[in-house]
Amino acid sequence: MAEVQAKDSGGGGKNKQKKQTLRVDFTPMVDMNMLLITFFMMATTLLKPQTMDLNMPSKDKPQDGQENKVQDTDAVTLLLGADNQLFFYEGMLKTENYEDLEFLKSSEYGADGIRQLLLNRNREAYSQIQDLKEQLKNLDITQEEFNEKSVSIQKELMKAHKVPTIMIKATEQSTYKNLVDALDEMLITNIGAYAIVDITDGDRYLLFKKTDNAEYLTEAQRAEAAGV
């Protein structure tokens, strides 16, 4: 391959033609290339990082009548506690719930924990959107059509109160990982309506009651609890 048959052009004609083989040794070249390949493999990222889209509600005060009111029965509140603990309650928090230890239930992240409840509450939207995802996978519909259809499904079911609205409230003791895990569950269970909401004093009190951990309380609440 890398041989060149060099012919002596010779002038005299009578001279014996010297046949020479020019063979180029490619071994060093291969060595160098291998080194370069190794370098590029080590120094680069082939995989682009994944991202998760997050939309936060606007901070502007909604005008009268434009507020989104969540129906009592649709609401599910997730409380992200310390040490990767997860708590939730269904419905709205009312005064009579404060002393009810069963109102706030403890759960965990992942398939065996909160996902069962979410899937159960969201099963209609889940199955419909899962169908759509299947169609998208088989290229029966385009990405745009998928987005459009899934939004309309969510809207329709929301009107019929068949999908839950999830409020994610993180305590000061929870970590970023907990937040992402909670958002992840929303993605897995195809929940359309969820928001990250600031924790309220009532939620803090519930957590304190449940876990007996005074860290959940605010300064004022702690002082009050100590006074009593």
Binding site: P49, M52, M56
Partner: peptide
Amino acid sequence: TPYPVIQTVLDNLRELRKNRYLLIT
């Protein structure tokens, strides 16, 4: 990262009326 740190970032962004983010995971 503890949540209050994230909350500070998000609150600052929301005050600037930036309500859409990408969380890198």
